[in-house]
């Protein structure tokens, strides 16, 4: 870190931070503006980058925001649902990457909708307070993704019709394995 061993011309890495204070991409900004206009301070714009808009919503609002994203902004499917565990915040974040096939102006865009669930020290998946509203009635495509997040992080999605395990074996009795407190042996 102290000595730059084999750096390339430093011009390029420097050029990136310099580009940051310049105008936010206009189209992406208009998307985030629409969400803010509708929900006000209920949502927080996490970032506006090229082709990516990040929206943060509280867990009680995420269902409404997702509904607006589908009906008001023409997004139509969820590409990926990832959980991220933050033990120091006592929260588990669930990130939906939402895209659109039917609206060609949104073909490049991904709307990153994230929300956070309460995290339990001693999880009892499905029976503790780690719960979020399911978006399956809005975006059908989240069905398997939410099942995966439930077994890997213990986030129970209320309203999901089929909260069975998907990838883990039926007799798995340990912590949900992608939580940070589940450690790989020997590491």
């Amino acid at each position: 870190m102290s000595s730059d061993t084999e750096t390339k011309p430093a011009a390029k890495p420097v050029a990136k931070p310099a580009a940051k204070p310049v105008e936010l991409p206009a189209f992406e900004k208009s998307i985030s503006d629409k969400v803010v206009e509708k929900f006000g301070d209920k949502v927080e714009v996490e970032f506006v980058k090229e082709n990516r808009v990040g929206i943060k919503a509280k867990r009680e609002d995420v269902h409404d925001v997702a509904e607006f994203v589908r009906d008001g902004l023409n997004y139509d499917h969820v590409e990926s649902v990832s959980g991220v565990d933050y033990p120091q915040d006592k929260e588990i974040e669930v990130v939906y990457h939402i895209g659109s096939y039917s609206d060609s102006s949104l073909a490049k865009q991904i709307l990153v909708l994230s929300t956070r669930a309460q995290r339990e020290e001693n999880p009892l998946p499905g029976k503790d307070a780690t719960k979020l509203p399911s978006l399956r009635d809005i975006f059908y495509s989240v069905e398997f993704h939410e099942r995966e997040v439930f077994e890997m992080f213990g986030v129970y999605f209320t309203g999901h019709p089929d909260n069975r395990r998907l990838l883990l074996p039926e007799d798995w009795a340990d912590l949900p394995p992608l939580r940070k407190d589940f450690a790989i042996k020997g590491r």
Binding site: H77, Y101, F139, S141
Partner: peptide, 23 residues
């Protein structure tokens, strides 16, 4: 579209979506 399929499954159903063109 509703099921969020991708690749050849999506394009076989008449949706022209290929990231090499779109993004």
């Amino acid at each position: 579209i509703r099921l969020g399929t991708t690749g050849s499954v999506l394009r076989a159903s008449g949706v022209n979506y290929d990231l090499r063109q779109k993004e």
